[in-house]
Design a protein around this nucleic acid. Structure first.
Length: 466
RNA sequence: GCUCCGGUAGUGUAGCCCGGCCAAUCAUGCCGGCCUUUCGAGCCGGCGACUCGGGUUCGAAUCCCGACCGGAGCACCA
């Protein structure tokens, strides 16, 4: 089998489906998976992508047995093109695409179709020397009166004068030609790809027939619609150049490296893609499903911390001296604990709570600072509230169905920035966050899971999901 | 317009080829409960679908026809 991306950028969720599914078939039934990089359109080649694609596949756990780069195989395509011309199955056409389209729709042959083999062979060589880009293509003689206009004498070789980063060339095979030649020569027995290739499969069938080759088995799966992310590699590239995205792993992108940066595990992505399968109907991919799979994987490893987004100050009168060890993970005492502390001065201490919690408070509200104690709101201002210490007992809070709210001491805390797909949220985190390391996946209680991306003055975390 | 494909709960999926064991599977989601010092995890319960209309048949999610809806392709991109 094969996975055949364009080297126009790193892999995204759409590629992951093709890669994972092909990999899964190979692992299940035995065989070989070839990574074939299809770089026959010099205009769309992004040089770093050759390496990025392989990195992404390794991350995904896709086992590649062989790597083939099409630009290294141009001579092979030329050779088979000549064979086709010699057999009278192809001709060099000088029509412009508009002219040919008109003829094609009218089921009319163009004047170049009736040239002799000799003339065609000569003209083909001229594509390497004389013709300019757009002046000539090599067409396959499939018939101009075929039912499907798309099938009629489609082109298989063209000229591009855009320099190619890997090779010096000007004549390139078109996708349907190089794919058919390679699939056969590389011994591909099963092709698993998106249904946007169904028409291509029928085109490639002509080439197989002309050479008398046996067709591989084809499986086409439907489109994957993913809410809210840009998947088109060319659009992402534009966005990066225009400054809308910081890089290929910008939190708002659907690239695999963006997901990895946010703390997604490749196993979760594999599972989601395997679950989606190879149905030919289109599907709306739901993030919630992927979140659930990922949560299952990271929940056991993510230590808990308090992070307060958009902090608002609450001043507590009569606050007790308070210090307490709390588990880093409720189910894993062996992982140790973190210390929550509050040191009042003259009976007054101040904490930050999240703006979203603050909004729900009223004067007289009774609430509990998680892992701490119960307080009562005395006075609520716009940006600050006054509260009074009430009691220590958790039971009291439960009995009164008080909200349990996470908090951070106002005097001692760490600046935290959480980068989410749609915005960056700033806030403060508890002092023990000083101990987290880059790449740790943590859970900010009552907020969500995130991966630590940067530690220094403060902490920068990339948000994964709730 | 032309060529081709597909339609099972909010989402994904099993079942369809080989009709009965399907008043339809599993997961996720949502709602509720228990537990828990998270809106997390776990446990328990609930919600929720065969697009519609004909036909064949003793019997249809499954076979046939039509309608409707959705999608893909019709490039000198892959």
């Amino acid at each position: 089998m094969r996975f055949a991306p364009n080297p126009s950028g790193p892999l995204h969720l759409g590629h992951a489906r093709a890669a994972v599914l092909n990999d899964a078939y190979v692992k299940r039934y035995g065989g070989k998976l070839i990574l074939r990089i299809e770089d026959t359109d010099p205009a769309r080649v992004f040089p770093p992508a050759y390496e990025m694609i392989q990195e992404d596949l390794r991350w995904l756990g896709v086992e590649v047995h062989e790597v083939v780069v099409q630009s290294s195989r141009l001579e092979i395509y030329y050779e088979y093109a000549r064979k086709l011309i010699e057999a009278g199955h192809a001709y060099v056409c000088e029509c412009t695409s508009e002219e040919f389209q008109k003829l094609k729709l009218a089921k009319k042959e163009c004047e170049h179709r009736s040239k002799s083999v000799k003339e065609n062979l000569e003209d083909f060589e001229r594509m390497f020397t004389e013709y300019k880009e757009g002046e000539a293509v090599l067409r396959l003689k499939t018939g101009v009166d075929l039912r499907d206009p798309a099938m009629r004498d489609f082109p298989i070789m063209r000229i591009s004068e855009t320099p190619h980063p890997r090779v010096k060339a000007r004549v390139y095979p078109l996708m349907n030609f190089s794919v058919a030649i390679d699939d056969h020569l590389l011994g591909i027995t099963h092709v698993l790809r998106g249904k946007d290739h169904i028409v291509n499969t029928r085109k490639q069938e002509f080439i197989y027939r002309f050479f008398g080759w046996r067709m591989p088995e084809f499986i086409h799966y439907g489109r994957l619609k993913i809410e809210g992310v840009a998947l088109s590699t060319s659009k992402i590239k534009e966005g990066i150049e225009a400054g809308r995205y910081a890089s290929w792993d910008d939190a708002s992108l659907g690239t695999l490296r963006a997901l990895a940066r946010r703390g997604f595990r490749s196993e979760a992505i594999r599972k989601a893609m395997l679950e989606v399968g190879v149905k030919q109907s289109d599907i709306s991919f739901s993030w919630k499903n992927l979140f659930a799979y990922n949560r299952e994987l990271i929940e056991p490893i993510a230590n808990r911390y308090f992070f307060v987004a958009s902090p608002v100050e609450v001043v507590i009168e009569g606050a007790p001296e308070f210090s307490r060890e709390v588990r880093l993970h409720p189910d894993h005492p062996e992982r140790g604990s973190r210390k929550l502390e509050l040191t009042p001065e003259q009976g007054i201490a101040s904490v930050f709570i999240a703006h979203s919690d603050y909004e729900k408070l009223r004067e007289g509200s009774f609430m509990r600072l998680m892992e701490g104690f119960n307080i009562e709101i005395v006075e609520k201002g716009k940006e600050k509230a006054k509260a009074r210490f009430h009691s220590f007992e958790l039971d009291e809070a439960k009995r009164r169905k008080a909200p349990l709210i996470h908090w951070v001491p106002a005097q001692e805390n760490i600046a935290v920035k959480v980068v989410k797909p749609d915005r960056i949220e700033s806030g403060v985190g508890e002092p023990s966050l000083a101990k987290v390391k880059r790449d740790d996946v943590v859970q900010f209680e009552r907020y969500g899971f995130a991966r630590v991306d940067e530690v220094g003055e403060g902490v920068v975390a990339y948000y994964a999901h709730p």
